[in-house]
């Protein structure tokens, strides 16, 4: 991919114009030469990262990350069906909304993790006990928890305590508006880490995978 910069710019433009067909043909044109995994790593992930960064600095809005994330997720599913042997080997991961009824944050993170070629189980909404049970049952290694309401964010502490009691080593990574408004809150609830967006969620996956490979 020699003209990678150019392709990236075009791909990002297509996403922001909600031009799924254009985005798709850009990926397909490059897939022939390079393989799906490479296209995802070199085009999809950086484009979403760039769009996410632009949200952080205020130059793009949430509706734009949501729409582009959804398009990418669909395209990646086409390129890399769930069972594809090109999918990355990875820790077992799941994502849930805790005690809350607000799903968009989770939806965005889920799309972005899957757009990077990972698989992640979507638990939907769970209460504290339901979540602890599911994490243990499925032997989850990284659990992403999203909350929008402050009381639900505080409830994460109970999840962490119960998992610790069971000697479960899962890494709890949290996010959602309350954590963006108070940067100490993730520590207060005993999480392993927090993320402001999908880029940071991916960053944590990479970090934890590096640690594992060492």
């Amino acid at each position: 991919m020699d003209n990678i910069k150019q392709v990236l710019i075009q791909f990002e433009e297509a996403l922001l114009n909600l031009d799924k067909i254009g985005a798709r043909s850009l990926l397909l044109a490059n897939e022939d030469k390079n393989g799906s995994a490479e296209v995802i790593n070199k085009i999809v992930v950086p484009a979403l990262k760039h769009i996410g960064d632009a949200w952080q600095n205020g130059s793009l809005a949430l509706s734009q990350i949501y729409m582009s994330g959804k398009i990418c997720e669909q395209l990646v599913d086409e390129l890399l069906p769930a069972a594809s042997n090109q999918r990355r080997s990875q820790p077992k991961m799941a994502i849930a909304v805790l005690n809350d009824y607000h799903f968009l944050g989770k939806r965005i993170i889920y799309s972005q993790i899957r757009s990077a070629g990972f698989e992640v189980i979507d638990y939907g909404r769970k209460t504290v006990d339901e979540l602890v049970e599911a994490v243990c049952r499925d032997e989850i290694e990284i659990i992403f928890i999203s909350t929008l309401m402050y009381p639900s964010a505080l409830d994460i502490e109970q999840v962490v305590e119960k998992l610790e009691k069971l000697a479960n080593k899962v890494k709890v990574i949290v996010g959602g508006a309350p954590f963006n408004m108070d940067e100490k809150l993730w520590q207060q609830v005993g999480a392993y880490a927090m993320g402001v967006d999908g880029n940071e969620a991916l960053g944590w996956i990479d970090k934890l995978m590096e640690g594992k490979n060492e």
Binding site: W55, G58, L60, A61, L62, S63, Q64
Partner: peptide, 8 residues
Amino acid sequence: ISMVPREL
């Protein structure tokens, strides 16, 4: 502006 872009 956190939710929708200014143009929208």
